[in-house]
């Protein structure tokens, strides 16, 4: 009765994501121009029939670059979130299932991660590892693990002592089997929600890093990289920031809408009840630090 059906917002979000994903994936097949095709005689042309989103300083088609940039942005978001998910799942499971010292250690590490300024962590990781797409994903993933770990741990604590788990244990099931078969499925829905909401935040964090000059390198920029590169032209060639900005905003908005919708649909209990359960379990499923780099 409490689970509310997905509202119009969720539907709009899903539709938006479908359109964006299709456009980004099909870009190469449909568009007349490649994202790296330079033509200096056509530099900085405003939007027109030939170039719907205009051209940049090198005469490259902004539409083609926005769509290809989407691949980078979405890939960074997905990979980084997956890294965060895997790290958080491993750490959270270990903490929740084994308890005791493992639990204390993991949770203090999570606390430290939370208390640490995101930006410093990102700069540090980006500086130490060989720069590139993977480094970026690793850095963004490493920043997000703690929230996932807390969530998983809380869920596991809630189901660990349930009867069917106890029964399976009595029947002689091993740790891994217990976790995989009986415990993890219980964490699935909140994880999906957090994963989806985090996608938007991660794409945003990548954009912020680009603004600071630490994002994806040219000539294959992400949306954030395109906006950052276009900012000096905000007054002379506004289409350079406007289009990647709008698409980036629409994408993050869509992820947020879908994430919120999923939360409403999947979460069996109200926030209050969740809060109480969390407290009994010892720790709330605290949200990640706002917006990463703001």
């Amino acid at each position: 009765m409490r689970a509310r059906a997905a509202g119009p917002g969720t539907a709009a979000g899903l539709a938006g994501l479908a359109v964006i994903a299709a456009a980004v994936l099909l870009a190469g097949a449909v568009l007349p121009h490649g994202p790296l095709e330079m033509d200096l005689s056509r530099s900085l042309q405003p939007p027109s029939g030939a170039h719907l989103f205009g051209t940049d300083a090198f005469g490259r088609d902004v539409l083609a670059r926005v769509l290809h940039g989407g691949r980078v942005s979405l890939a960074v978001g997905l990979v980084a979130r997956s890294i965060a998910l895997l790290l958080g799942l491993a750490a959270g499971t270990a903490a929740g299932y084994f308890g005791g010292r493992t639990d204390a250690l993991v949770m203090r590490l999570a606390d430290v991660t939370f208390a640490f300024p995101t930006l410093l962590l990102l700069i540090a990781i980006m500086a130490v590892v060989t720069p590139g797409l993977w480094a970026l994903c690793a850095a963004l993933g490493a920043v997000g693990w703690a929230a996932m770990a807390r969530l998983v741990r809380g869920q596991i604590l809630a189901v660990r002592e349930r009867e069917y788990v106890q029964a399976a244990r009595a029947a002689g099931a091993g740790h891994l089997r217990l976790i995989a078969r009986y415990i993890l499925p219980q964490c699935l829905s909140p994880l999906i929600v957090v994963f989806t909401l985090g996608l938007g935040m991660t794409i945003m964090a990548e954009a912020s890093l680009s603004f600071l000059g630490l994002g994806v390198q040219p000539p294959a920029p992400s949306w954030g990289g395109m906006i950052a590169a276009g900012i000096p032209f905000m007054r002379t060639a506004p289409w350079l920031t406007l289009f990647p900005g709008l698409v980036l905003t629409a994408t993050i908005l869509a992820f947020n809408l879908v994430g919120d919708g999923l939360r409403d649909a999947l979460d069996p209990r109200s926030p209050l009840a969740r809060r109480r359960a969390g407290r009994v379990a010892g720790d709330g499923a605290a949200p990640a630090r706002a917006g990463g780099v703001r």
């Binding site: 000059g213 040219p218 000539p219 590169a229 000096p232």
Partner: peptide, 11 residues
């Protein structure tokens, strides 16, 4: 070094 203008030059 990070700098939008340098980025355009090197591209």
């Amino acid at each position: 070094r990070e700098n939008p203008e340098a980025g355009r030059v090197l591209e």
